[in-house]
């Protein structure tokens, strides 16, 4: 039982990271139909910018805030200078643009920062909390709480504000949204900015546990994408669910089956889910337009 609890703690910690990356995928996908493979780079930027500003002597809260601002600007720039000029291009072309962007950002990070691994001090120390024979780091709880707060804020924003409704309308039908007077460029750009900010916050929160370096983005994008698809692309709740499930799957198969094949087990489960539910766990079934 203590084992299971330990595996669950591990799975939830890792899963919360995947969930936040998947949430970023979902936001941008909903607003623009783009699968943004540079999403992992936002996580990298959040962590690394904070590390270097901290080293430059800024206090942690200021460094973290500036890192979020910097990533948000990068997200906006990505939309303004790469995605917007290519609007109307097919989905694969747009994916290639984001892959190009991720190569560019990774290359820029290795020049501006360095190629080493870095860590950040945890918010509440690193004395593990022991519970039922298992141990969890306080920072893991911070990450989980952070993910929860972000999801709640997002929901409140979309549900309770006019601008949020405009974003939702853009996601549902871009042409119709434009017809009722919504500036869809603004709402799509906004989605990129929020997505980048969420990525950066995730990066800052998880760096004390997972460490960070210029090239962590690729793996995160891969896992986050898988999590978003498992949950059903387009569904924010699905993204979070998919992320947590993927993390749990990895931890449980590493614990009970084989650590060597834990990634394999996770993907076999994803494949199995998709065969039963081709639109993911919470995704809407798509109807092909003829």
């Amino acid at each position: 039982m203590a084992e299971l609890l330990q595996f669950a703690f591990s799975g939830l910690t890792v899963g919360a990271v995947y969930a936040l990356v998947a949430l970023g995928f979902t936001l941008i996908y909903n607003a623009s139909d783009v699968i943004n493979f540079a999403q992992g780079e936002f996580v990298m930027l959040g962590g690394l910018v904070t590390v270097f500003l901290l080293a430059a002597g800024l206090p942690l809260p200021v460094a973290a805030l500036l890192a979020v601002v910097a990533s948000t600007l990068v997200g906006l720039a990505l939309y303004r200078f790469a995605i917007e000029p290519a609007r109307g291009a097919n989905a694969v072309t747009l994916i290639m643009i984001t892959i190009g962007a991720s190569i560019f950002l990774r290359g820029a990070a290795q020049v501006i920062f360095d190629k080493r691994y870095h860590s950040l001090p945890p918010l509440f120390g690193d004395t593990p909390i022991r519970f039922g024979g298992a141990a969890i780091l306080p920072q893991s709880l911070v990450v989980l709480a952070g993910a929860l707060v972000i999801v709640v804020l997002l929901w409140a924003f979309v549900d309770r504000t006019l601008f949020g409704k405009a974003v939702l309308a853009t996601a549902a039908n871009k042409l119709a949204a434009r017809l009722v007077g919504i500036d869809t460029r603004l709402t799509v750009g906004f989605s990129f900015a929020i997505s980048a900010a969420i990525g950066a916050i995730a990066g800052i929160l998880v760096t004390p546990i997972t460490l960070t370096s210029y090239n962590i983005g690729t793996l995160l994008a891969l896992k986050g994408f898988a999590a978003a698809m498992l949950g059903g692309i387009g569904s924010a709740v699905g993204a979070v669910l998919g992320g947590l499930l993927l993390g749990l799957l990895e931890a449980l198969s590493a614990g009970y089956l084989s650590s060597e094949f834990k990634d394999a087990v996770a993907f076999i489960v994803i494949l199995a889910v998709l065969f039963v539910r081709p639109q993911g766990l919470l995704g809407r079934a798509r109807v092909e337009r003829v």
């Binding site: 591990s10 546990i209 931890a251 449980l252 614990g255």
Partner: peptide, 8 residues
């Protein structure tokens, strides 16, 4: 980023 299951 987490190997606690293996170490457990």
């Amino acid at each position: 980023t987490d190997v606690t299951p293996q170490l457990t």
